[in-house]
Design a protein around this nucleic acid. Structure first.
Lengths: 235, 235
DNA sequence: TAAATAGTGTCTTTAAGACATTATCGC
DNA sequence: GCGATAATGTCTTAAAGACACTATTTA
């Protein structure tokens, strides 16, 4: 499969959007996969990508493909990177622009769709280079979760500290000491108490928190802009 | 300008590589720009990009275009992101894959080429969305410089602490207290002393350091994988 | 009241910022 | 010796980890 544009330059045979949709399920980070219905690699598990059409922005394509194949949209979507090796797809030169999508796991429950959640540390054989793409998505999420409000995409509008803690634990794969977790998240400046509490069964009721910002934002905690505070004179 | 591939899908009219080449010059971070020779936007300053050919990997194209237009290659090159809005280029749907390139500023000295260094905080009017692309490159460099050995691309093989400090200061735009800078860089685990020293003029001779790793690597300092060390049991 | 869960307080260790002091060069 | 530059040491503050303790619910 080849393509040439009207000016004679080589052009890709197509451009695909490739959403890596992550969510914590049962305490572990999972990724959403679908079975490929067409050749090549028909029957294999893969990310729910698809061709871009050139009349919408790439993020829109990623969202649309996701919705078409799963019935839901992601709460959060950001670009990861582009995989453009000409030999990555046997059909020809087809670069993929990968996206990281996050979704409140409670929303999507594999409702008969072709999509299924797999733990990111126990993936089935995957088509193309999708295993590497997933690894990049997981790394991005782990790297940002404490420094940005990216977890907006994984928690309900209001949540308790233990709830947030379980989500963070699923993401990073470590166990947080509850009081230190609380202190860390409060000092991040990303969340605030709503004043409300919820009671679930026995135990002290939990206070409800919410994100200060639901648009992408960074923690107020210095992300290594240390140095003597005397900023270099901006000449 | 349009393109259609042999399977009938819409395809981009072309795919360009867009290197954002940064280097500290005279204590300030600069970016390498060229004058556009062709329409559209002929005569405007722009990043030294060019069309990918489909027979090389995108990073190779970025390096090649850079070398063609400036006579030198970057020491370090990593992908930033892809700008794929169909309306970003008046010629048609032409996504650009942006790369961050780093170079030892001493190497390239605008040797009559069409390329020129501009301070990143005093850019001329730029073609297309290149101003935003440069901003993304600068942000990536600033965000990584303390946490990875990305500065390998900006320093000679062996360097002194004051030398490294000046580079870091140019990147971040702040002034570091020398002894704290030294401690921070040493504790990063990224560099080691070679045992050699250099004398330049008056003053105590400076010890030479080198990067432990010249391939991309992360600082050993915890990048917020805090939590109780008892990692969650990997089941 | 006991078990369960949430939240508070505090002690210790480590990293970061400020700054004084010492070391080694050219002249 | 003196000025210049590099390197070391130390005091203070703030963040991170461990852990004991208190609070509020259901049964």
């Amino acid at each position: 499969m080849r393509a040439v544009n009207s000016a004679g330059f080589a052009a890709p045979a197509g451009l695909t959007a490739l959403p890596v949709v992550l969510a914590p399920v049962a305490g572990k980070l999972h990724v959403l996969l679908v079975r490929r219905e067409e050749e090549p690699r028909a029957g294999m598990w893969s990310l729910p990508g698809g061709f871009m059409s050139g009349d919408e922005r790439p993020e829109e394509t990623a969202q649309r493909k996701l919705t078409e194949k799963t019935g839901v949209g992601a709460v959060y979507m950001e670009q990861l990177q582009t995989y453009g090796d000409p030999r990555r797809d046997p059909r020809g030169w087809i670069p993929s622009v990968a996206y990281l999508g996050l979704i409140d796991a409670a929303v999507l429950r594999e409702r008969g769709s072709a999509a299924r959640w797999f733990p990111v540390d126990a993936l089935p054989p995957l088509a193309f280079d999708h295993a590497a793409v997933i690894a990049d998505g997981v790394e991005r999420l782990r790297g940002k979760v404490w420094w940005s409000n990216i977890a907006v995409g994984l928690l309900p509008e209001q949540f308790t500290m233990p709830q947030a803690r379980r989500v963070f634990e699923a993401i990073s794969g470590v166990t947080y000491e509850p009081s230190n977790f609380r202190r860390g998240l409060e000092q991040s400046g990303l969340v605030r108490a709503t004043g409300r509490v919820v009671k679930n069964g026995p135990g002290r009721p939990a206070a409800l928190y919410e994100f200060v910002d639901r648009q992408p934002a960074w923690s107020t905690r210095r992300s290594r802009v240390p140095a003597t505070v005397r900023a270099a004179e901006t000449s």
